[in-house]
């Protein structure tokens, strides 16, 4: 589904990713861990198509197609979704209207008619129940005045609405209390299928108790320095990242 080859990327001439190789297949959950500043969020943004990041070298294939030149919205239309670490507040646009616009623009790009209003409402109801979101919440301005937990739940709600093939969860666990973490993880697990894939980016192993990865990759100085099964996450939790850094520098 996703194939990244020797990816180098920079922002404002500062190299951040220095040769990433990663392959994600349908049905898989990959965790990307690593110390602060290792390039985790940059990798997420580059896959999603943030323009400020310059891809200097390497390729990103999504379902066999090189998506490097595609705009963020085109990648979204193909089924790439990024759950933001810091969701942006957009006063004046309600959650519902934002989702209607996103879904209908995606449908338009695929040559489909707009989703009928009753179908949209039904979908919104189902998905908001999945994330235990109060209906009143949906008429509020997008992310404006939301608590950390509400913002993250809203991200996963959007994911549920857009039904992406590849979901990248960037530090979705940060700022969540244990109840919110459970709700969010539960939502992600219910959306998982053999046809879609998830990349979980996290600093801590905590979220991975709920969203169990098939593979764990450790990012350090813009490179994946170690990959392994889910047990690697536990090892990192116990031993920290220093041994990884030492191994990498050795």
């Amino acid at each position: 589904m996703l194939k990244i080859k020797n990816l180098h990327a920079s922002v404002e001439d500062k190299g951040i990713l220095r040769g990433i190789n990663l392959e994600v297949n349908p049905g898989e959950v990959h965790a990307i861990m690593g110390p602060n500043g290792s390039g985790k969020s940059t990798l997420a943004s580059v896959i999603a198509g943030k323009e400020e990041y310059e891809v200097e070298q390497g390729e990103i294939f999504f379902e066999g197609e090189d998506i490097n030149e595609l705009a963020a919205e085109e990648r979204a239309h193909k089924g790439v979704f990024l759950s933001f670490q810091y969701p942006v507040e957009i006063p004046g646009v309600s959650v519902t209207n934002f989702m209607k616009t996103a879904i209908n623009e995606t449908r338009k790009a695929k040559g489909l008619e707009e989703m009928p209003a009753n179908e949209m409402l039904k979908m919104i109801r189902e998905k908001s129940e999945l994330l235990e979101i109060d209906r009143k919440f949906l008429s509020r301005s997008l992310n404006e005045g939301f608590s950390g937990g509400e913002k993250k739940r809203n991200e996963i709600f959007q994911m549920a609405m857009l039904e992406p093939k590849l979901a990248i969860l960037d530090e979705t666990d940060s700022g969540l209390d244990i109840d919110a973490l459970r709700i969010v993880a539960n939502g992600v697990n219910k959306l998982k299928s053999k046809d879609n894939a998830v990349i979980v980016i996290t600093h801590y192993q905590r979220l991975l108790d709920y969203i169990v990865p098939d593979y764990v990759h450790v990012l350090h100085q813009g490179k994946i320095v170690k990959s392994g099964p889910k047990e690697l996450a536990h090892e990192l939790e116990e031993k920290g990242y220093d041994w990884i850094k030492e191994e990498a520098n050795a």
């Binding site: 198509g49 919205e73 942006v88 957009i90 006063p91 934002f98 616009t101 623009e105």
Partner: peptide, 30 residues
């Protein structure tokens, strides 16, 4: 226009032109 808001909306499949319009609409809406 807030670039991070633009990226956020575009990553949800809203094209650049519509994202701009939505942001401007939101800006003046209150």
């Amino acid at each position: 226009l807030d670039e991070s808001a633009m990226f956020y909306m575009r990553s949800r499949g809203i094209p650049k032109k519509e994202a701009r319009a939505l942001l401007m609409y939101a800006f003046s809406n209150n």
